[in-house]
């Protein structure tokens, strides 16, 4: 790190990003926070209600259900997406035949429209003709046959599988680009010292991209807590709220139920939970590294 004597230069460097970001991201958020103290249907004038929205949310069973589902998404993402993506990136970073093809294919789900993802996975999970149950039947595990998306106890897990699948590619390319920064001299040196592939990966590669893995985990948590698109298109929170997450609940309350204050209060809570979780996680992981 350098000490720059001229603070104006730092200011000039950061200002453009700061201004755009503050005006078009932070300001709207804070306006939304302000709405969370109001009762407003969007048509009639707002009324200040203090903490009433928050009180109501904390007693709302659907909110807590959606919160629980969000936690499931976080766990699935952190323990599903990140390791799978990392393994894939480590494999495809080596000289594998067709690596470019596999790299492209790995990234595909990030690019495909959510509509197509939801249609095809709904077919895969379908209880009557779905591929999943068909395979179970073929390998003699018919007793495991389930109504994957139709059973409220299972639906959220089925959705989590799709979410993992959808975003592996995202972390995959982040890890890919990180792997490019691992200094090849150190790898060569390790090789000369007789380190095998595992040792090189474990002692050289992973530590040097650890920072990026942390970044990915943070991205994972924040992305999971505001996950919306796939669930909204695939199940719209059903059956019987079984796959409701905070963001879909907020959206329905705001734009379908016309409760802007209530919806805004949910988004404030999403924000607060994210900060809490990420700082806990950072503390824990940070300590482990040290």
């Amino acid at each position: 790190m350098h000490l720059l004597k001229n603070p104006w230069k730092i200011g000039a460097g950061i200002a453009p990003a700061f201004l755009i970001y503050t005006i078009f991201c932070i300001v709207p958020i804070f306006v939304s926070f302000y709405y969370s103290f109001m009762s407003w249907n969007g048509f009639s004038p707002m009324q200040f209600v203090g903490l009433a929205n928050y009180k109501a949310i904390l007693q709302d069973p659907v909110f807590w259900l959606s919160f629980r589902n969000n936690i499931l998404v976080v766990l699935a993402s952190v323990f599903g997406q990140v390791p799978i993506a990392l393994v894939l990136a480590l494999i495809l970073n080596r000289k594998v035949k067709g690596a470019k093809f596999f790299r492209t294919i790995a990234f595909m789900p990030v690019v495909i429209s959510t509509v197509v993802i939801s249609l095809t996975w709904k077919m895969i999970f379908n209880v009557e003709y779905g591929m999943f149950n068909w395979i179970l039947q073929k390998i003699g595990l018919e007793f495991l046959r389930q109504n994957w998306l139709g059973d409220p106890d299972l639906a959220m897990f089925a959705v989590c599988v799709v979410i993992i699948w959808q975003y592996v590619g995202l972390y995959f390319i982040i890890f890919m680009s990180a792997l490019q920064t691992v200094p090849s001299e150190i790898l060569e040196a390790a090789e000369l010292d007789g380190a095998n592939e595992w040792q090189k990966t474990w002692y050289v590669t992973l530590p040097s991209i650890w920072n990026v893995i942390l970044v990915s985990i943070v991205l994972c948590i924040s992305g999971s807590l505001k996950t919306f698109d796939l669930i909204f298109v695939m199940t719209s929170g059903g059956p019987a709220n079984a796959t409701e997450v905070m963001a879909t609940y907020m959206y329905t309350e705001t734009f379908r139920g016309l409760r802007y204050g209530y919806g805004s209060a949910i988004s404030v809570l999403i924000f607060v939970f994210s900060i809490g979780m990420i700082s806990l996680c950072m503390k824990w992981l940070g300590r482990r590294v040290a």
Binding site: K122, N126, V127, E128, N147, L149, G150, T235, P239
Partner: peptide, 8 residues
Amino acid sequence: FNEDLNTI
């Protein structure tokens, strides 16, 4: 009804 009534 069909078994998948809640997913179609």
